[in-house]
Design a protein around this nucleic acid. Structure first.
Lengths: 138, 138
DNA sequence: CTCTTAAATAAGAATTATTCCTATTTAATA
DNA sequence: TATTAAATAGGAATAATTCTTATTTAAGAG
């Protein structure tokens, strides 16, 4: 993702272009495993030592609000973020690795299923699978 | 869940029967919305003011290890716990409500699907749906 | 290009959730 | 009833995140 793309992403979502926001989007571009705020802060500190920790949190929250990134659900109380916006699911194992799982056929099966079967008192907006298991070759 | 059942639950899992553990299982019996540690601590404080906060955390962790309860994945950094052990999925909305969703037909569809389709480099142990949406009548 | 202003950020204090530590207590069992 | 490993109390420590306020800056107007 080059600079032009980053600028577009920001303006498209009605956000001012700032060095801090640009840096964080660059960081996401480098990382491909659902980084925690902590990991991003670490990266930012190395490349832009003058960006404040609070700003990273603020910016991440702003990006979530705008739909540029998403929060990943976890069960250990540390937030992680996902830059991918195409529909996908998540593979979890015990060692905190979270990987994306894309499966268009599965998406269609789910969509079909819930086209007929509604959940009383609940309006579905999105379905994501948490697939728990073990990575073999890590 | 009466006292006998609670005692059984503990001994069955090789745990000593203590007032603290009993109290926490009683708490779960009162609560039906995936309480956070905080909520449980609040409840415990009212009924047994002499049980320490750390003990509640320890005990919850012990119960998770033994499979008596499960952690629920969330995206806001606060752990929540689930006493239900039958297979089920979760409905999430924006207001922190998490409800159980049981659907045997769906479970079978998923099981069938992943009987044929394997995920390279990953051995599936369990699949849970995060269904995001809105509760109508809350 | 300069000015204006709302928005964004820095810096660090404060808060929240959770874990850790150690002395004391207790449940199980012999 | 005595023994002992396991469990707990109490509170300090840590980690993650949010909050606060003064300062800086990006974007648009003139």
């Amino acid at each position: 993702m080059d600079f032009i793309k980053i600028r577009n992403t920001l303006t498209m979502h009605g956000l001012k272009i700032t060095p801090q926001r640009t840096a964080i989007l660059e960081a996401f571009d480098e990382m491909r495993d659902h980084p925690s705020a902590d990991i991003i802060i670490e990266y930012i500190r190395q490349h832009h030592p003058n960006i404040a920790t609070g700003t990273v949190y603020n910016t991440l929250e702003t990006f979530v609000d705008k739909g540029i990134i998403q929060k990943v659900k976890t069960e250990n109380g540390v937030m992680r973020y996902d830059f991918i916006t195409e529909k996908h699911h998540h593979l979890y194992d015990d060692s905190n690795i979270i990987k994306d799982y894309f499966d268009e056929e599965l998406n269609e099966i789910l969509q079909d299923y819930f086209k007929n079967k509604t959940i009383p008192g609940f309006e579905i907006e999105d379905i994501k699978l948490q697939i728990k298991g073990k990575f073999n070759n890590v």
